[in-house]
């Protein structure tokens, strides 16, 4: 083990010298597709920059930024006070870049005749007070609730906007990502789930919530009740012209807007 340590010490020194052109991105699986697209876009233009993207959850992003293990933290929620404070204590100054807006569509299987739920009904379904689709105008089928894992910004947004501190029923299934929510819902006729706007396709049906269907327009105008901004956090504002700076300003360019739109999220710019 000692030899390993010695080896590591020397190699780490060498490593730092050659680490100028890497950008490590960690965080939310919701922001993941945007980060991945931006990463390939940047790497195509600047082959000398190596960008790696992990999708391990918003909290992991914040943790990475705090520990200096990542340069950009993707987050689908804003930083918590505790995280901010911990950063400040360590001399790290998190700067938020809002790269896109997102709604949380409530997803059901397309065979489900239910078209419209209120936030209250969604809440009751997840609380376990409504357990059958019959109670909300559907057929006599037990509701299978599916939620994002508790370790995700998406879950915390849902908890904040829908659950209002209520505790989700115990038999709720948890899955690790937006994609997994969609695949669970599309294979389970009686399921209900929620995911990022970019993950909705024709294999699942996004319900109207309070009569508003989730779309770029309704999210942008604030009509759709379950919406949120998506962030990338950096430590301080990146130096002008640096690869990092270029990365976190892509969303402000025309190409960036197109990518955000094509991935299915709502851009913050309107060219």
């Amino acid at each position: 083990m000692k030899r390993i340590i010695a080896l590591v010490a020397t190699t780490a020194l060498v490593g730092v010298a050659s680490a100028q052109t890497k950008i490590v991105i960690d965080g939310s699986t919701t922001v993941g597709p945007i980060a991945k697209a931006f990463a390939e876009y940047t790497m195509a233009a600047h082959p000398e920059v190596n960008i790696s993207v992990s999708e391990s959850g918003s909290g992991n992003g914040a943790k990475g930024l705090l520990n200096g293990t990542c340069d950009i933290a993707d987050m689908s929620r804003s930083m918590k006070d505790t995280e901010f404070k911990a950063c400040a204590d360590k001399g790290i100054q998190p700067v938020a870049h809002v790269v896109a807006l997102d709604g949380l569509p409530i997803l059901v299987h397309p065979s489900n005749p239910v078209k419209d739920l209120t936030v209250e009904q969604v809440r009751k379904i997840y609380l376990g007070e409504i357990t059958n689709w019959k109670e909300v105008g559907g057929p006599d089928q037990k509701i299978v609730t599916i939620s994002r894992d508790t370790s995700s910004g998406t879950y915390e947004t849902f908890e904040e906007k829908v659950m209002e501190k209520g505790k989700i029923r115990e038999d709720c299934e948890y899955v690790g990502s937006n994609g997994a929510i969609r695949s669970r819902v599309q294979t389970t006729p009686a399921a209900i789930g929620y995911a990022g706007l970019g993950f909705v396709d024709k294999t699942v049906k996004a319900l109207k919530v309070n009569g508003i269907s989730p779309s770029a327009e309704t999210v942008q105008s604030g009509q759709y009740p379950i919406a949120r901004p998506l962030f990338m956090y950096t430590n301080g504002y990146p130096a002008l012209g640096s690869p990092l700076y270029q990365f976190v300003t892509i969303h402000l360019s025309e190409d960036g807007q197109e990518m955000v739109e094509d991935i299915g999220f709502v851009p913050v710019t309107a060219y």
Binding site: T11, S18, V24, K36, A39, E40, N50, S52, V53
Partner: peptide
């Protein structure tokens, strides 16, 4: 492990994820 990254050069393995 990360989900997206370029193929690494051998010396980059010391401080970069793959």
């Amino acid at each position: 492990a990360v989900s997206v990254g370029a193929p690494l050069k051998i010396w980059e393995t010391l401080n970069q994820p793959t």
